[in-house]
Design a protein around this nucleic acid. Sequence first.
RNA 1: GGUGCCAUACCCAAGCGGUAAGGGAACGGUCUGCAAAACCGUGAUGCAUCGGUUCGAAUCCGAUUGGCACCUCCA
Length: 470
Amino acid sequence: MAINLYNTMGRKLEEFKPIKEKEVGLYTCGPTVYNYAHIGNLRTFIFEDILKRVLIHSNYKVKHVMNITDVGHLTDDGDAGDDKMTKKAKESGKSVWEIASFYTDAFINDSNDLNLIKPTVLCKATDHIKEMINLIKRLESGGHTYISGGNVYFSIDTFPDYGKLANQNLDDLKTAVREDVSVDENKKNSKDFVLWFTNSKFGEQQMMWDSPWGRGYPGWHIECSAMSMKYLGESFDIHCGGIDAIPVHHTNEIAQSEAATNHKWVNYWVHGEFLLDETGKMSKSKGEFLTLSLLKSKGYDPMDYRFFVLGGHYRSQLRFSFENLDTARKNRLSIVAKIQDLLEAGAKKIVLESEVALSLANEFDECVNNNMNMPKAVAVLWKTLKADDISNDEKYTLILYFDEVFGLRFDEVEKPKMEIPSEIQELIDARVEAKKQKDFEKADKIRDQITDLGYILKDTPKGPILSKKM
RNA sequence: GGUGCCAUACCCAAGCGGUAAGGGAACGGUCUGCAAAACCGUGAUGCAUCGGUUCGAAUCCGAUUGGCACCUCCA
């Protein structure tokens, strides 16, 4: 079955055709590790994980490269503003290396919590300075650079296709002037960008390397070009990121990469929309921000968040609220409970044969392969859970099949096994006795007691069932 | 100033020219001593508004209104 993806380059839905027959080269822009990732950042990583799973689900081997940006980025693509890493280091009294290492670990933890499949290569910018320097050298010998104010700049005049990804043309970009943004006066064009800094105004810059242009550090676009080419070759299949990367970061990556190699670099550009909060854009710089650990501390499972994200299409803005997260949790737990019922009834994984089961599998594949229509795929899951014309084994098998893409850890669901504390068991027994005596007042009182202790007691025809309050 | 996106029931949300998926909430019912859970059932004659194209429009085109994002550190 064909996989269709919306390609930002060209702005249309396209059938995915990999360069190699059964292997896909995928590069996704990773985090800048100067702080925790907020759940908006994580939405993008989840969408990329879904894409990867869709490819794997279709039996592609995926070579996935993700960068860790552990070099300080300036708050501007010119030589202005603060360096976030340096700022954070200064605030916390740690070295930038310690900061980078700490938040890299935090990111990996979040990734594991969210059941993101590990990248084939997770590479740090600071480990690839040599590759970046070599790429800049190639650009320099191709006449794409100039030195000004001590820094090496990329000259967009030398790359006529500049701005194509963002639907902007070079002449417009050169003439358009935004009044609200100041421009680095060393630049020939306001959209030129730094490849290598030597003349930073930041005296306390801790990360510095020798280069042909002097001791300094790389600009903030070159790492993705250098590392993706190192691991995936000078042309590869898919490059992902958040939509904000389109006009500057990815535009500049394309300029550098294609100017250096003189050929097309990436075939499919896939971008995820933003997660918004009640007020609009989610931001790290507003001070307080929503992290996965915050959600966990409020009692949510990371899978609740993952399921929430699956409720919207990756190309649509999604508004976060705890109300919606609660709904996602409720729904997910209801699905988990149904899986537990299936397991309780002895369901096991089998080979699908019935026409109904196969058509459900097919329906699911059509959803996920059609530009990752996850909300619709979830609807197929509900349909499957309700189906009364397939066996329990088929139902369970389908759920696991779907979960290859959902990644909601349905494969880890087990039969409910709960140790009932003896004091609770005594209360249950007392209540059974009270009910037998038709002393319902007492029975209700005992049930309240059990509820207060953090459990939920339900009467069923088979007797009372205890579960933990969520 | 430039580039995009969006508007579907109380809420979230799919829909890509053939007569409005799905989930939650709500309501009714079955079950229950009562609850809870579960299960069954009910719900937009209409998709911001106004025009147009078409045999046919939520879907295409134009205008209007309202909202959002990106181009500034952030996915």
